[in-house]
Structures are given as C-alpha cells and as structure tokens.
Amino acid sequence: MGSPPHGKIPVQAKSPLMLEESHLMVILKGRIKKLATKMVITSGNEEDKGSQEKESKEETILAMLGIIGTILNLIVIIFVYIYTTL
C-alpha cells in the first residue's frame, strides 16, 4: 500500500472520531458561510457620515438636557424638603 494521493487519508483508515470531527467541520463551515452572507460591510459615503455626525450631536444635546433636568429636579427636591421641614 503506497502513500495516499495528495496526503489524504483513505476513508478506511479514518477512525469514527475523525469522521465525526470532519462532519462537524463541514457543519461549522456552512454556518460561517451563512453568517458571512448576512453580514454586510459598508464603507459609508459622505452623506452617511454627515447624518451620523448630526445624530451624534443630537444625542449629545439630549444627554446634556437630561443631566441638566436631573440636577434641576434634585435642587427642587432639596428646596421643597427644606421648606416643608421649617
């Protein structure tokens, strides 16, 4: 029995564990291909970048307004507490 062509192991020489591993590899490769087709890489053009920057600024403004509102509410609560305890 000579060496197998291209370094492949003949099917008869493979153990059941090796067959199971190769089966799992086929399944994993199929799932990776499905995942790769679902993932879309976008480079983004100038319009997208402009709208993203605008949204980022809007989110920053809203976050600042939320913080200011929270601080004002705390000040009101403190004044009301002081007024009611006197």
Rank of each mutant, 00 (worst) to 15 (best):
L74A: 14
M25L: 14
K54R: 13
G69C: 02
H6A: 14
L62T: 10
Q52M: 12
E55W: 02
S56Q: 10
I67Q: 12
I32Q: 06
E47S: 06
V80C: 15
L24Y: 10
S3V: 03
P5W: 01
M39S: 05
K38H: 10
E21Q: 13
K54D: 06
P10A: 04
G7D: 02
Q12W: 08
L74Q: 14
I77R: 02
E47V: 07
K8F: 02
V40M: 02
P16E: 03
S3Y: 06
L35V: 01
T60C: 07
N73I: 08
I77K: 05
N45D: 15
P16R: 03
T84G: 05
P16G: 02
E46H: 05
L24T: 00
I68T: 09
L86K: 13
P4Y: 04
I61D: 05
E59V: 04
P4H: 13
A63W: 01
K34I: 01
K38W: 07
S56M: 07
K29A: 14
T42Q: 06
L62P: 02
Y81K: 06
E47T: 10
I32M: 07
K49E: 08
K57I: 08
A13T: 03
T60F: 10
A36P: 00
M18C: 03
E58C: 03
E46P: 00
M18H: 09
I32N: 02
V11S: 09
G30R: 09
L86A: 13
K38L: 10
E47L: 08
L24M: 14
L72N: 00
S56V: 03
K29G: 04
S56D: 13
M1N: 05
L65F: 06
I41H: 11
L17K: 11
I71S: 10
E20N: 09
L74R: 12
K38I: 05
R31P: 00
P10G: 00
I32E: 04
L65P: 01
S22V: 02
I61Q: 04
A36E: 12
A13S: 10
M1K: 09
I77C: 08
T42R: 09
G30A: 12
K34W: 00
S51Q: 15
F79N: 11
N45E: 11
K34P: 00
V80S: 13
S43A: 09
G66L: 03
S3A: 08
T37R: 15
K8E: 06
G50P: 01
E58N: 11
G44M: 03
L72K: 00
G2P: 04
Y81C: 13
E55V: 01
K34E: 08
I78Q: 02
K49F: 14
I75Q: 05
S15E: 01
G7L: 05
L35T: 01
L17W: 11
G50Y: 08
S22M: 15
L62M: 12
A13I: 04
E58D: 15
Y83M: 06
S22T: 06
I75C: 12
R31T: 00
K54H: 07
I82N: 05
V80Y: 03
E59H: 08
G2Y: 04
